[in-house]
Amino acid sequence: MSIHDLVSAYALDALDADERRDFEAHLATCPSCQEELAGYDDVLGALAEPSDATEAAADDAAAARLAASLRERIAATEQVAEGPSAPTAETAEPTRPEANVTDIRARASAPTGPAAGAESVPSSMPEPVRRQPRRGSRLLVAAASLLGIALAVTAGLMLADRGDSSQLAADIERIRTAEDVVEQPLGLGEAVAYVSASEGVALVGETPGLDDEETYQVWVVPADGSAPVPGPVMADGDSEVVWDTDLDGAAAIAVSVEPEGGSTTPTEVVTAVEL
């Protein structure tokens, strides 16, 4: 089979991540595959057809019910930079340290973007049920501006391996189901942050790949502008981390890219979730 033969599997979303990347690279330069792919539009539409009138009515109702909150959410969501790419382009890939800090600052000071969308939301909109992460906020700038400040940390703050995986899973479950838990996209690959003031922080999901000698690290960014508190390190790829930390006075949870083993001050902040 040649790569042209993968069009239908790609349309059906049956390729693994590597195959998909290869095929998308091919698709960009192959008019015949582009044309064939367009031919599967009706198949995908048909598979999304309602099974009967009852399902159709229920889904139309659900769509109407969710419309207002969706509008709120997109108003609070910063769009990626322009440039064609396929559906699931990874957008949170860490870049070089200097570039990344600059990028965060640039985005933080950009006058338009998601805020422009917010103005066009009708004023009849209900209040959002929960706060959305606002990336590029001044808190993130605070975290970034603290780079390079030396910080003495007690070794005890650095959480090592939590031990066996069933304990980890139980901890995640405890945080996920906590009464005050807030679930937010971490802004890093597919990973999700579960934040509970009573139970702690759990980060779960697929994160973009890192170089061999690099790791992610979690931080609490204090609201009073003091230095970020270092948390546990987290592997790239499919990863999970739990941090039973005190969130009193915290403004955000940040994630940075660090040399293996972690650091006491953040090297390269790649995302933050405002609390």
Partner: peptide, 14 residues
């Protein structure tokens, strides 16, 4: 979809 829509290219699918 909203977030990544700036990267949408019609040549690569409907």
């Amino acid at each position: 979809a909203w977030r990544t829509s700036p990267k949408y290219d019609p040549a690569r699918g409907s």
